[in-house]
Design a binder for these strands. Sequence first.
RNA 1: GGGCGGUUCGUAUAGCGGCAAUUACAUCGCGCUGUAGACGCGACGGCCUUUCGGCCUCCGGGGGUUCGAGUCCCUCACCGCCCA
Length: 392
Amino acid sequence: MSYFDILKKDETSKARNGVIHTAHGDIHTPAFLPIGTKGAVKSVTAEELKFWGAEIVLANTYHLWQRPGDGLIYKAGGLHSFMNWKGPIFTDSGGFQVFSLSKMRKVMEAGVTFQFDLDGRTEILSPEKSVDIQANLGSDIALILDDFPGYPFEYERSKESIALTKRWAERAIKEFQKIIIDGDPINPGQKLWGIVQGASFPDLRKQSALDMVALGFEAFAIGGVAVGEPHKEMMLAVEASIPHLPETSPKHLLGVGTPFNIVQAVARGCDTFDCVIPTREARHGRLYISQKLKVKSEKSVVEGYTTINIQNEQFKEDFTTIDSACDCYLCLNHTKAYLRHLFATGEPLAIRLATMHNLKFYLNLMGKIRKAIQYDYFDEMVKSYYEHKTEK
RNA sequence: GGGCGGUUCGUAUAGCGGCAAUUACAUCGCGCUGUAGACGCGACGGCCUUUCGGCCUCCGGGGGUUCGAGUCCCUCACCGCCCA
């Protein structure tokens, strides 16, 4: 059995249905990974996630290293045991946090010097350290530490970042072999994935992809996207990376994205996605709602989605369901007016219900995509699945 | 009856003569893409203006001093505390 099996290839695009086999179970792709940064998807339980159809969650090296510490999680028997999530876990390398939340970040050959945001102490995150931490966490999918520039993209800076990412990858692999292959790891089935960088420059993306393939990775993440760039540039980055990676390898698009981004990226060959949008926006009162639109000139039904801010005054006396096409607990049991009331009064249940709904929306979306690929109408879905507003 | 304190945006407050006037909460709206977080930003007297801005109304009522008053003076009303 190979690591990744392709079950069905779409005839009209690069989309495919597949299964990633991990030490803690299978992941049916295209898949969405709910984000559980600190070992919890905010406000919901592991059991609920499983019930809604999530097959894998993402946790974060940076945050868990800082607190409670990877050593403690190792003692707990690994992150699966610690958070009681029995399915696969994907861990970010910490590279993104060092990029996004440290003011004191300094990228050097050895690694990244930065200050922890909680207590201000200075630390160095090196490629080896990131692998060590992730080994202690015992995740099923670990990422190499990568370097990447923010947006707007600059060619020279991006060129440096793919070169540094490659050198760091070599060191990460050595460390990974030392621990996972020659040592006594908590999760012997852990896999280390490479990361393709290169902003939206086709030649850099190609070079970075070839570097990662040459280093022998079996699976890849596409990084450096979802940092503020327009949709078109994001897709350009994907299109420039995918052709240079083995078709038979699973590909993750880091940090993406909106439902529209995801449908478009699946069509370009991406298999898995993670994003804070459904959970973060739920806490801020924004709910994703499926929408069937009819286009005047055609008879076909166009499927898309929209969002609402449930805290808006217009929902004060709206006693209808949030999304009549949704099968989540919120939509089956409560009205818009009630959820608005829960937000207005600061009831913790508001966040839980909204999070449930948005996650179910995303997980249902992935189910629709897999079904569309399986039954040969994915091309129709791509054409009809509109963003709820015009992409910038 | 006497003394003191108070009355400013829905509520609570700030405000040593140049003020459409502080802050908090509430209200309303927007944002969120490998989680700096259950958070951030904006509006919040009215009208007009694309912006700069302009006009009107405004700090319990009335009167006064002043170039100019939420701010100083007089007076009335109401509220609170204290003394009779």
